[in-house]
């Protein structure tokens, strides 16, 4: 790889642009494609190769086609956590390790403190406004953990209108039913409401905050990747 290709690649990733690096496995020649245009490299891809690169981006999968490796750099995964609660303290570092850029939202200063979340992007403000500003996309997961309808519901109402690949909300079955009714009254789409994961997480019998965080991250992974085989 040439230094110029690496620099352009890192710039495209920093700008969160859909990017594909094509490498000729026979000689190492490369072409860097950003938003459909070749921006660097010594390889000139034909129409078929460009189309294959587009497919890879859409499927979020790097692969080898006819001796060329198509490596995709999709925008990063994001996790928005509503509620700077005990479970969030466990979930944030786990999700960070799994590759998510994490944002925590909580208007309550005592919860959203630097001491409780050192080095984490914590926004101390009302969830609804922050959620709108965050513009969740199809690479975003949203988890509502406050257990307080005043905070969770407005955040979920915004989440339900987005392309987020996972929306989860803490609470028992009874809480989930009551919440679904409130969201419906508020005008959210019933089909979208039904897709909220609640009770939250994969049922692994989690008890402690850290175990619940594992179950949430497991369910997020399942929503992102789908089950293997079968």
């Amino acid at each position: 790889m040439k230094r110029s290709v690496l620099e352009q690649l890192q710039a495209a990733r920093d700008a969160v642009l859909p990017t594909v690096l094509i490498t000729d496995l026979a000689n190492g020649a490369q072409a860097l494609i950003v938003k459909g245009e070749v921006v660097a490299g010594d390889l000139v891809p034909d129409t078929a190769l460009k189309a294959a690169a587009d497919d890879c981006l859409r499927l979020d999968k790097s692969r080898t086609v006819d001796g060329y490796f198509l490596q995709i750099f999709n925008p990063p995964l994001r996790l928005i956590v509503v509620g700077a609660v005990h479970i969030a303290q466990a979930l944030v570092p786990m999700a960070t390790l799994a590759g998510y850029a994490v944002t925590v939202i909580d208007p309550r200063g005592a919860w959203a403190s630097e001491a409780r979340f050192p080095g984490v992007n914590v926004i101390q403000d009302w969830p609804e406004e922050v959620m709108i500003a965050q513009k969740p996309d199809r690479r975003t997961a949203i988890v509502a953990l406050t257990h307080d309808p005043k905070l969770d519901d407005p955040a979920l109402a915004v989440a339900l209108k987005s392309d987020a690949f996972y929306i989860g909300a803490l609470g028992s079955k009874k809480t989930a039913v009551a919440r679904a009714e409130r969201l419906k009254q508020g005008g959210s789409d019933p089909e979208a409401i039904a897709a909220i994961d609640g009770p939250i997480g994969l049922n692994i019998g989690a008890v402690s905050p850290a175990e619940i965080a594992v179950s949430i991250l497991a369910k997020m992974t399942l929503a992102l990747r789908g089950p293997k085989g079968g």
Binding site: L25, K61, S62, R63, T64, F69, Q71
Partner: peptide
């Protein structure tokens, strides 16, 4: 750049 079977790390 390519995997078959149960390889632990995906292409890329």
């Amino acid at each position: 750049v390519e995997t078959w079977g149960s390889s632990p790390r995906p292409a890329g």
